[in-house]
């Protein structure tokens, strides 16, 4: 009676169910690969079934329970699924553009993904200032090393390529995105003065369309084009160096009416005057936060160790014919066959 009541529970531990759930996970991955709009449920449901299946197998299946390496491997698989879920809940991904001389402000971050348990408040604790950066290019516009200097409490850090800036658990990575920014000052006839910056599209990727638009506080639309003094060389090596950023600003105040300003020059407009203060550059970063990364790494290594141990015990004990007397005999038999 008791045994028969246990039957359906035990079938949750079945290896056949593992096979079906793994096949379903495979189908889910393929489905979401070919149709990106698919919901995450196609992966989450098979993973959940696998997790339940594995938990029951650990209780009821002696083959997995009594086999230390295999058990270790499967516990790690389960732990990885759990860590992946925790990661989804607590992690965040974002991006930002920050200008030379500018201090990081969490409001600059565009959040791309945010787990429900992640509080963006933590970003407010981050303090650093973007200093100069250099990006190397070689023939054919192939991007080389990126060196971006950050100032943190008076100390200088150089990040770029394989080296992120780690702060308060957040990782800031330089991206291929970077470009020019112009500092502008507005002096209104009403006596109000404001200063700000306009970022132009990624350079040299969009060197052919360095355009942006801006509405003056008086409501006039300005079409701006930044003309860099830096020539993009296709057939030789060169460096994009933010400390040497220079160029002029072409402003279209009305269709066909254009004016070119150099740094320090002013332009009279409706309701005030605009000054082109200076040229700077902005660097694009991606931001990543996942407090479980180290655990992910540790658990996966332990899992592989368990699997290796399992195969060592399972296969290592059985003799494999290598270049020993056995194989010489075997070759002899073959040759005389």
């Amino acid at each position: 009676m008791f045994q028969s009541a246990l039957k359906p529970i035990q079938s949750l531990a079945s290896l056949k169910l593992s096979f079906v759930a793994m096949a379903a996970l495979l189908a889910g991955i393929l489905y979401s690969y070919f149709d990106q709009s698919q919901s995450v449920l196609w992966l989450a449901i098979p993973l959940l079934v696998l997790a339940v299946n594995l938990l029951f197998a650990m209780v009821y299946n002696p083959r997995i329970r009594q086999n230390s390496g295999l058990l270790m491997f499967h516990i790690c698989l389960l732990a990885l699924a759990l860590l992946a879920a925790l990661g989804q809940l607590t992690s965040m991904k974002g991006r930002l553009e920050i200008m030379q001389g500018q201090v990081f402000d969490s409001k600059q971050v565009t959040v791309v993904q945010q787990g429900p348990w992640h509080s963006l408040q933590a970003l407010n604790k981050i303090v650093f200032e973007q200093s100069d950066f250099q990006v190397d290019y070689s023939q054919g516009l192939r991007r080389g090393a990126t060196h971006s200097q950050l100032l943190v409490n008076g100390e200088s850090f150089v990040v770029g390529d394989n080296l992120p800036f780690n702060h308060q658990g957040y990782r800031f990575y330089t991206t291929s995105n970077k470009g020019y920014a112009v500092m502008l000052a507005w002096f209104g006839k009403d006596g109000k003065a404001i200063q700000g910056a306009i970022h132009f599209p990624s350079f040299p990727l969009y060197d052919w369309k360095q355009d942006n638009q801006w509405f003056t506080p008086a409501g006039q639309l300005l079409n701006m084009t930044f003309i860099s003094n830096k020539q993009v060389a296709l057939n030789e090596s060169w460096q994009l160096d933010s400390s040497q950023a220079s160029g002029s600003l072409q402003i279209e105040t009305a269709p066909g009416v254009q004016q070119i300003l150099k740094p320090g020059q002013r332009l009279k407009l409706q309701g005030g005057e605009l000054e082109f203060v200076e040229v700077r550059m902005w660097m694009g970063y991606s931001v990543f936060y996942n407090p479980w990364l180290v655990w992910f790494f540790a658990v996966s290594l332990v899992g592989v160790f368990g699997l290796t141990w399992h195969y060592y015990l399972k296969l290592g004990s059985r003799k494999i014919v290598t270049r020993d007397t056995d194989s010489v005999r075997a070759e002899h038999v073959i040759n005389n066959a």
Partner: peptide, 19 residues
């Protein structure tokens, strides 16, 4: 076993290189 190691080392590299 080696494929698993490839996935792990790839993940570590991707974290450093592409965030």
């Amino acid at each position: 076993v080696f494929h698993s190691l490839m996935l792990i080392s790839g993940a570590v590299w991707a974290q450093d290189a592409w965030g």
